[in-house]
């Protein structure tokens, strides 16, 4: 009987082997992909997985009559396009949320005083007069328009300020960017308004311009200053709709994408 039991045991083992192993696919387990995290350009320690955008409408004190009343409704479609663009460029690894500062901020100075700097797009400090005033009046506890956005942005979100300026110019630096309201509302800038906005927004995430200043030499040796593209992406070329624009692969690599 012992031999029969042993034979049965081996028979069961053989049948189990036949059923579960012979001719059965060996399937490799799913590959574990080390997740990459989006971060500020060149700063791997500063995450931008979540970007919280506070949009403020800044009107110099001498241009309050020009200020538009439905500014939020006009700007919001651009912000939604920016969200879509950002999502696809960062492969869903960075998300933008936005909110509006509830009221128009009337500057303490006249428009020309701010524009002296802002019009110099290549100057990274051009935006400082505006951001300094916003910081002092809106973000400081003692400011007359104080709102506690630093606290609200806690929880890992990168706080970025987008200033829609009632005047000329555009710039971005630090964690703030500034764009002329005219780029977003006037027909002459269509369909590039959102591209301009995104270009300045990405400066606030540390992205540099993808063009450099140079000269073009004509046949008669006449030299004219020009901007030479180093990449045709959104940081180099803004004369296309945001739907057809992109962020250069080399830049994305430096942001963990």
């Amino acid at each position: 009987m012992k031999k029969i039991f042993i034979t049965f045991f081996f028979l069961i083992v053989a049948l189990a082997g036949l059923t579960f192993f012979v001719g059965v696919s060996r399937v490799e387990p799913i590959a574990e992909l080390k997740p990459s995290k989006a971060h500020l350009y060149g700063k791997p320690d500063v995450s931008i997985e979540n970007v919280s955008l506070l949009v403020l409408y800044f009107v110099p004190k001498d241009r309050t009559e020009r200020a538009i009343s439905g500014w939020k409704e006009i700007i919001e479609p651009h912000l939604k396009e920016l969200q879509e663009f950002h999502n696809i460029q960062f492969s869903g690894k960075s998300k933008i949320s936005y909110e509006f500062y509830p009221q128009i901020i009337v500057g303490e100075k006249k428009g020309k005083e701010y524009e002296m700097n802002i019009l110099d797009h290549s100057n990274p400090e051009a935006i400082i007069p505006v951001t300094e005033e916003i910081s002092r009046r809106v973000l400081s506890v003692n400011g007359d328009l104080y709102i506690n956005k630093e606290k609200e942005a806690s929880g890992g979100a990168r706080q970025v300020y987008l200033v829609v300026f009632e005047g000329e110019g555009g710039s971005g630096n630090g964690n703030a960017s500034l764009i002329s309201r005219a780029y977003l509302t006037e027909n002459g800038y269509e369909p590039f308004g959102t591209t301009f906005l995104a270009h300045e927004f990405y400066h606030a995430l540390g992205l540099p311009d993808n063009y450099q200043q140079s000269f073009y030499v004509y046949g008669d040796s006449q030299k004219i200053p020009i901007s030479v593209l180093t990449a045709k992406d959104i940081m180099g070329r803004v004369g296309v709709s945001i739907k057809n624009s992109y962020i250069d692969r080399e830049i994305l690599k430096k942001m963990g994408i």
């Binding site: 140079s214 073009y216 020009i226 030479v228 593209l229 045709k232």
Partner: peptide, 11 residues
């Protein structure tokens, strides 16, 4: 775009 801008692309 309807009115493409002429760019300097040497780089």
């Amino acid at each position: 775009t309807k009115t493409p801008d002429m760019l300097y692309v040497s780089e």
